[in-house]
């Protein structure tokens, strides 16, 4: 253990608390809003003490939104399911395509390999809005607009370069001789990939997958344009709360709480992999 004086520890604690409060405040505030009605939320001045209500969550889960103008159907649970389905499938497809590709780029230098890798990365440079118009036209021609397959395909623009480039770095960090040692011991390159390279890059792959999942989950603009109501993820679905009779802050907050919960849970679960993944370089070959 490092030795620190009492004063130093107190100061450090205070500083950390300030930072945590600063960053956590919006989330805490949203969490509190999700248990309030629009009236209590919009009180001026805002108050910390209120009578909690589960009405927002009930409305979201039952899909019936009561407004001053009447009852409104909302498809939030459907949106949430869409988000889960789209993100999980996109990341799975990206991992399936990206991890072997990353391995190939890391281990085999061939003519144009750098160019191809860079082209794949460049997908992330293009502003989404610039790509969207031609993409929409093509997708309508091909019958891919408003399909899960079409959306998952477009989501590869987000996930694939990310996974490819992060995982490639991890593969490059594994000394090639470890794989050679395995191959010369009487194993094929595919067995080497499965038994040596994949496990050693495992934490990196998990980290890349998690990041890709978060990016896919947070995507808004592709789904907004390419999907209709029944295929929309939560990010787009939240627009439904801006109704003719006003903005439903309570429901929006509850929707946010529900939609960040899966990513948060996943991040907490995968935290140890992330840390392991980042310290992989410390393992001597």
């Amino acid at each position: 253990m490092e030795h620190t004086s009492l004063l130093e520890r107190i100061l450090r604690g205070v500083a950390l608390t300030l930072v945590v409060i600063f960053f956590m405040f919006p989330i805490v505030w949203i969490f509190m809003m999700s248990f309030q009605t629009n009236e209590t939320i919009l009180r001026i001045p805002p108050q910390l003490i209120f009578e909690p209500t589960l009405a927002n969550y009930t409305a979201l889960i039952t899909g019936k939104l009561m407004t001053a103008a009447g009852t409104l159907d909302i498809a939030f649970m459907r949106n949430l399911w869409n988000s889960v389905f789209l993100s999980v499938t996109s990341v799975a497809v990206s991992l399936l395509l990206g991890v072997p590709a990353a391995y190939a780029f890391a281990r085999h230098k061939f003519r144009g390999s750098e160019d191809i890798a860079f082209t794949l990365l460049s997908f992330r440079f293009a502003p989404a809005l610039l790509v969207l118009l031609p993409l929409t036209l093509y997708f309508q021609k091909l019958g891919l607009a408003n399909t899960y397959i079409g959306l998952i395909w477009v989501y590869q623009l987000i996930c694939l370069p990310l996974i490819l480039w992060i995982v490639r770095g991890y593969f490059e960090d594994i000394p090639a001789d470890i794989e050679y040692a395995y191959r010369i011991g009487g194993h094929s390159w595919f067995a080497t990939f499965r038994k040596i390279a994949l496990p050693l890059a495992g934490p990196g792959i998990a980290a890349a997958g998690l990041l890709a999942f978060i990016f896919a989950w947070n995507n808004f603009v592709f789904a907004l344009v390419l999907a209709s109501a029944d295929k929309q993820p939560v990010t787009v679905g939240a627009l439904a709360f801006i109704t003719s009779s006003g903005i439903q802050y309570g429901q929006i907050s509850a929707a946010i709480v529900l939609s960040i919960t899966p990513t948060l849970a996943l991040a907490l679960y995968a935290q140890r992999y992330l840390v392991e993944g980042l310290s992989l370089g410390a393992v001597k070959g």
Binding site: P175, D177, I178, A181, P199, L200, G285
Partner: peptide, 9 residues
């Protein structure tokens, strides 16, 4: 191997 290349796990 010169770099040992033992399997870390």
């Amino acid at each position: 191997f010169e770099g040992y290349s033992l399997y870390p796990p």
